[in-house]
C-alpha cells in the first residue's frame, strides 16, 4: 500500500495524448462511415435483392458478429502478409473495423428497412409521388428516424471498444499513446486514468453532437446518457 500517484509527468505529455485522441476519433469516424455504407448495401440486398445474395449477406453477418474484432484484425495484420498483402497497422484497424461494423450495421439498417410499412408507401403513391420522391420524402426520413438512436449508440461503441484494439498492433491512438508513454517511465496508473477520462470526455462530446444532429436533421430525440 505504498503507491503514490504522480500526475506531473502526465501533464507534460498531455499533447501526445490529445494527438492520440484525435487519431481515435478519425479511426472511429472512418470505420463507422465505411461500415455504414456496407451495412446500407447489405441491408438493401437482403431486403430487395435475390435470395442467393441475401444468403451471402447472412453468412457475412453471422460470421463477423460471432468472432472477436481483435481476431479479425490479427488476421489482416499477421495473416495477409503471407499472401503478399502488407498493410500498415492503421489500415488494418480501419479495414478490420469497417468490415466488423458493416455486419452490425447491416442488422440495424435491415431493421430500419423492415419498419417501412406498406401502407405508408401506398399512401405516398395515392398522392402521386414518384418512386424517387417516395425514397426522398417517405422511406429515408422514416428509416432515419427509426434507426438513428441505434446508429448513434453504435458509433460510440466503435469509437470506444473498436479503435482501442489498434493499440495492440502498435497504432498510436489514445490507448496506444498511453501504453507508449507509460512504458518509458512506468507511471501506468496515471496515464491510464487520464486516458480513461479523455475517453469519457470524447464520447460525451460525440454523444452531445449526435443528439443535436439527430434533433436538427431527423427530429429524433437521441439520448445523451
Amino acid at each position: 500500500m505504498n503507491y503514490t500517484f504522480q500526475y506531473g509527468v502526465v501533464w507534460r505529455d498531455f499533447d501526445v495524448l490529445i494527438d492520440g485522441a484525435l487519431l481515435t476519433f478519425q479511426l472511429g469516424v472512418m470505420s463507422f462511415w465505411g461500415g455504414a455504407l456496407i451495412g446500407l448495401f447489405c441491408a438493401a440486398v437482403k431486403t430487395y435483392g435475390q435470395r442467393v445474395f441475401g444468403i451471402l449477406v447472412d453468412f457475412y453477418v453471422v460470421f463477423i458478429t460471432n468472432t472477436p474484432a481483435l481476431i479479425q484484425i490479427y488476421f489482416l495484420y499477421f495473416g495477409l502478409p503471407e499472401i503478399g498483402i502488407r498493410w500498415s497497422g492503421e489500415l488494418c484497424v480501419v479495414i478490420g473495423l469497417t468490415l466488423n461494423a458493416g455486419a452490425y450495421l447491416t442488422l440495424i439498417m435491415r431493421a430500419g428497412f423492415l419498419s417501412v410499412r406498406r401502407t405508408e408507401l401506398e399512401a405516398a403513391e395515392t398522392i402521386g409521388m414518384s418512386r424517387l420522391q417516395q425514397i426522398r420524402f417517405v422511406i429515408v426520413p422514416h428509416i432515419a428516424k427509426t434507426i438513428y438512436p441505434a446508429l448513434a449508440n453504435f458509433f460510440i461503441v466503435i469509437l470506444v471498444m473498436g479503435t482501442s484494439i489498434g493499440a495492440i498492433i502498435g497504432v498510436d491512438e489514445l490507448t496506444g499513446q498511453a501504453i507508449n508513454l507509460s512504458t518509458v517511465n512506468y507511471r501506468w496508473l496515471e496515464y491510464f486514468t487520464i486516458a480513461a477520462l479523455m475517453y469519457v470526455v470524447l464520447t460525451f462530446i460525440a454523444s452531445i453532437g449526435l443528439a443535436l444532429l439527430g434533433r436538427w436533421a431527423f427530429r429524433v430525440k437521441a439520448k445523451v446518457f
Binding site: 470506444v160 479503435t163 490507448t175 498511453a178 496508473l189 491510464f192 480513461a196 475517453y199 469519457v200
Partner: peptide, 23 residues
Amino acid sequence: VEIFRRIPFLVVIYLVLFFIQAF
C-alpha cells in the same frame, strides 16, 4: 455506469491490472 460504459475494455483491463498490482 456512465463512466465505465465510455471507457474501452482494454483500458479497463490495464487499469485493473496496474491498480491491483500497485497494492
